[in-house]
Amino acid sequence: MAPSDWARHPTLKTPRLLLRPWRADDLPAFAAINADPAVMEHFPSPLDRSASDALADRIQAHFDRHGFGLWAVERPGQDDFIGFVGLAMPRFTAHFTPCFEVGWRLARAHWGRGYATEGARAALDFGFGPAGLEEIVSFTVPANRRSIAVMERLGMKRDPADDFDHPAIPDGHPLRYHWLYRLRASGA
Rank of each mutant, 00 (worst) to 15 (best):
residue 2 A to T: 10
residue 3 P to H: 08
residue 3 P to E: 13
residue 5 D to C: 02
residue 5 D to L: 10
residue 8 R to E: 11
residue 9 H to Q: 10
residue 9 H to S: 02
residue 11 T to R: 15
residue 14 T to C: 07
residue 15 P to E: 10
residue 15 P to A: 03
residue 18 L to T: 14
residue 18 L to S: 12
residue 19 L to T: 04
residue 19 L to D: 01
residue 23 R to A: 14
residue 23 R to C: 13
residue 23 R to I: 02
residue 24 A to R: 14
residue 25 D to Y: 05
residue 26 D to H: 15
residue 26 D to Q: 07
residue 29 A to G: 13
residue 29 A to L: 05
residue 30 F to N: 08
residue 30 F to M: 13
residue 31 A to M: 00
residue 31 A to W: 02
residue 32 A to F: 03
residue 33 I to D: 01
residue 34 N to G: 13
residue 35 A to D: 10
residue 37 P to G: 11
residue 37 P to S: 08
residue 38 A to I: 10
residue 41 E to I: 01
residue 43 F to H: 14
residue 46 P to D: 04
residue 47 L to E: 06
residue 48 D to W: 09
residue 57 D to Q: 14
residue 58 R to V: 02
residue 59 I to C: 01
residue 60 Q to W: 02
residue 60 Q to S: 13
residue 61 A to Q: 14
residue 63 F to M: 04
residue 64 D to W: 01
residue 65 R to Q: 12
residue 67 G to P: 12
residue 67 G to F: 07
residue 68 F to A: 12
residue 68 F to N: 12
residue 68 F to T: 05
residue 73 V to Q: 02
residue 74 E to S: 15
residue 74 E to W: 03
residue 75 R to W: 05
residue 77 G to A: 03
residue 79 D to T: 11
residue 80 D to H: 07
residue 81 F to W: 09
residue 81 F to P: 09
residue 82 I to P: 09
residue 86 G to M: 00
residue 87 L to T: 04
residue 88 A to D: 05
residue 89 M to K: 13
residue 92 F to C: 05
residue 93 T to L: 13
residue 93 T to Q: 14
residue 93 T to E: 15
residue 94 A to Y: 10
residue 97 T to G: 08
residue 98 P to W: 03
residue 102 V to G: 00
residue 104 W to R: 00
residue 105 R to L: 13
residue 106 L to F: 07
residue 110 H to P: 10
residue 110 H to V: 00
residue 110 H to K: 01
residue 114 G to M: 05
residue 115 Y to L: 11
residue 117 T to M: 05
residue 119 G to C: 07
residue 120 A to V: 02
residue 121 R to A: 02
residue 122 A to K: 02
residue 126 F to P: 02
residue 126 F to W: 15
residue 127 G to M: 06
residue 127 G to I: 00
residue 129 G to K: 11
residue 131 A to W: 00
residue 134 E to I: 00
residue 137 V to L: 15
residue 137 V to D: 01
residue 138 S to L: 04
residue 141 V to N: 04
residue 142 P to T: 07
residue 144 N to D: 08
residue 144 N to R: 06
residue 144 N to F: 02
residue 147 S to W: 05
residue 148 I to H: 03
residue 148 I to G: 00
residue 150 V to C: 09
residue 153 R to A: 15
residue 154 L to I: 09
residue 155 G to K: 02
residue 157 K to S: 14
residue 158 R to V: 00
residue 162 D to S: 13
residue 165 D to A: 13
residue 167 P to N: 08
residue 168 A to L: 15
residue 169 I to M: 10
residue 170 P to N: 09
residue 172 G to L: 10
residue 173 H to K: 12
residue 173 H to N: 14
residue 174 P to I: 07
residue 176 R to Q: 15
residue 177 Y to K: 14
residue 177 Y to A: 15
residue 180 L to W: 04
residue 180 L to P: 10
residue 181 Y to T: 07
residue 182 R to D: 05
residue 182 R to M: 09
residue 182 R to H: 10
residue 183 L to W: 01
residue 185 A to N: 09
residue 187 G to E: 08
